[in-house]
Design a binder for these strands. Sequence first.
RNA 1: GUGGCCUUAGCUCAACUGGCAGAGCAUCGGAUUGUGGCUCCGAAGGUUACGGGUUCAAGCCCCGUAGGCCACCCCA
Length: 433
Amino acid sequence: MPQLRAPRGTRDLLPDDAARFLRFAEVARGLTERYGYRPIETPLIEQAAVFERGIGEVTDVVEKELFRIAPRTEESEAWALRPEPTAGIVRAYVQHGMQTWPQPVRLTTTGPMFRYDRPQAGRYRQFWQFDVEAIGDPGPAVDAEIIELGLRFFAEVGVQGAEVLLNSIGDPACRPAYLEALVAFYRGHAAELPPTERDRLERNPLRLLDSKDPAMAALNAVAPRTVDHLCEACAAHFAGLRRHLYALAIPYRIEPGLVRGLDYYTRTAIEFYVAGREGQQQALGGGGRYDGLVELLGGRPTPGIGFGLGLDRIALVLDEQRGTAEAAGPGHHDAPDAVVVSADPADTVGRLRIATELLAAGLRARADLGHRKLGRQLEAAGRDGAHFAVILGDELAEGQVQLRDLEAGTQRAVAISDLARELKRGASQHRHG
RNA sequence: GUGGCCUUAGCUCAACUGGCAGAGCAUCGGAUUGUGGCUCCGAAGGUUACGGGUUCAAGCCCCGUAGGCCACCCCA
């Protein structure tokens, strides 16, 4: 057992997993490109103030989950690892004057996020998100666009049964009155509240709504709903969103208990999930509208909306839906067209020379670099899933090698000068046959 | 940050009531001259997560720490 290991809550993505995450990123790139979202990369570290101000000082994410980096000198500022991508992207929007670009500015990024909480399956301290943001458009049409994009991502990576939960949590115009009504309601039932919930009532009353405490279920069912207390503008926005979703034939469920954990959200709250799964890490993605965030971070008042999808959890769901994950170990997805082996166990020079010629010709080729006897080399080539073995033997004197079809078990002599051409023909036959 | 369960070879798991740590798979090597997948033989791989304690004797009992999982908190 090695004493050095990946830090708690982090993990190595071994080749099978790493390839899968890369594929997610490729799907994300193709998709967002078509929709007109342009890539952006912001630092993994930001001034802590970006998150404290943007996300909110009293949120769990900032209070207890932020990876803080201590200042190195008295003068330097406190930094933190990004717990989510939106605050950093909005910071970049303001810093680089993107309000002068055609609005909305559609941006996307995929990368690791960091939260210092207690790890569990599907919940890591370093996790990956595919994220999209549309900044500068107030209308509900862009809300619908982004939701449709999210669902399409799930479809393209092969997740079955992805669904959308929606809610509207109002804005600064209507939320104070709603909160008042909410607090008044729970105060009226203070005797029925568990202690932790009573504490929340003072600190963050919205959170009472999505409590998992069974004792709260009955109460929450009759609690005031955000959607019933929206101001005229927010109500119109929500109705507009529903109209657009209807026109796009996108099903959704309104979830009155869906209140996002970050302060910057206004109006539309979104969550993606797959129904009927075990365990608690059900959310595969979430996001919403943040019409006040740009201003909070020093820009002009600018609306925005976005979401992030958790790639670790999507990988988990794909495993569940396939029954079991493919076996670990060397995969055959990048199986070579040919492995160059030799009857002379010592002749790595000849093998490497032929292999590099094949590589230069664009083939997937590799040389067996060991000093094993021929049988072992062929055995290894077969295990690697190679289609052909190029066997170097006495025929080298006549400028020939044996080209062996490892699947058919047949072989013939081929002139070295014809080898690349022959292999290309054979490889394409294998791919189409 | 709170509580519960768990940790034996790279992986999946054995090891009686406390009595010399094992198997399968994977890896590497061999089975008479240059031919793989099957089979046979062999090797390597362990401070039983780590640190203490009890005992003639600890993988097994006790305490602590770390990590994983589960439920909270919360979220992706």
